Simulated assay, not measured.
Amino acid sequence: MLKDLFTSEAGVTSIEYALLGALIAVAIIAALSATGQENGGIWGRWTASFLSAISP
């Protein structure tokens, strides 16, 4: 019974996917943090341009 517990691979795949998802989340957060100030300026200019284009 104890041997079966240690040799079972039933939850291995889900743990691997969870670790991969966490790694991707960390990479996204790091990328957004590194370019955070630049992205704010880009989105601010885009929003201003869009609002001026749709205003009567």
Rank of each mutant, 00 (worst) to 15 (best):
M1T: 13
M1Y: 13
L2G: 15
L2K: 11
L2Q: 11
K3F: 10
K3W: 09
L5D: 03
L5K: 09
F6I: 14
T7H: 05
T7S: 02
T7A: 00
S8F: 07
S8M: 07
E9V: 10
E9L: 14
A10N: 07
A10G: 00
A10W: 10
V12R: 14
T13G: 15
T13W: 14
T13F: 12
T13K: 15
T13E: 15
S14Y: 00
S14W: 00
I15Y: 15
I15K: 11
I15R: 13
E16M: 14
Y17I: 02
A18P: 02
L19P: 01
L19R: 11
L19I: 08
L19N: 11
L20V: 06
G21N: 14
G21H: 14
A22G: 12
A22P: 08
A22I: 09
A22D: 11
A22K: 13
L23Y: 08
L23C: 08
L23H: 07
I24D: 14
I24Q: 13
A25T: 00
A25E: 00
V26C: 12
V26T: 15
V26P: 03
A27M: 01
A27T: 00
A27F: 06
I28R: 08
I28Q: 10
A30S: 05
A30N: 00
A31N: 05
A31W: 02
A31H: 01
L32M: 06
L32P: 00
L32C: 03
S33M: 08
S33L: 11
A34M: 04
T35N: 06
T35G: 03
T35R: 05
T35P: 00
Q37F: 01
E38A: 11
E38F: 10
G40L: 02
I42Q: 05
I42H: 01
I42S: 03
W43G: 06
W43V: 09
R45I: 03
R45W: 00
R45Q: 12
W46G: 01
W46Y: 11
W46Q: 04
W46P: 00
W46V: 10
A48Q: 07
S49W: 10
S49G: 12
S49L: 11
F50D: 04
L51D: 02
L51M: 08
L51H: 04
S52G: 05
A53I: 00
A53S: 07
I54N: 02
S55A: 13
S55F: 09
S55Y: 10
S55T: 10
P56L: 06
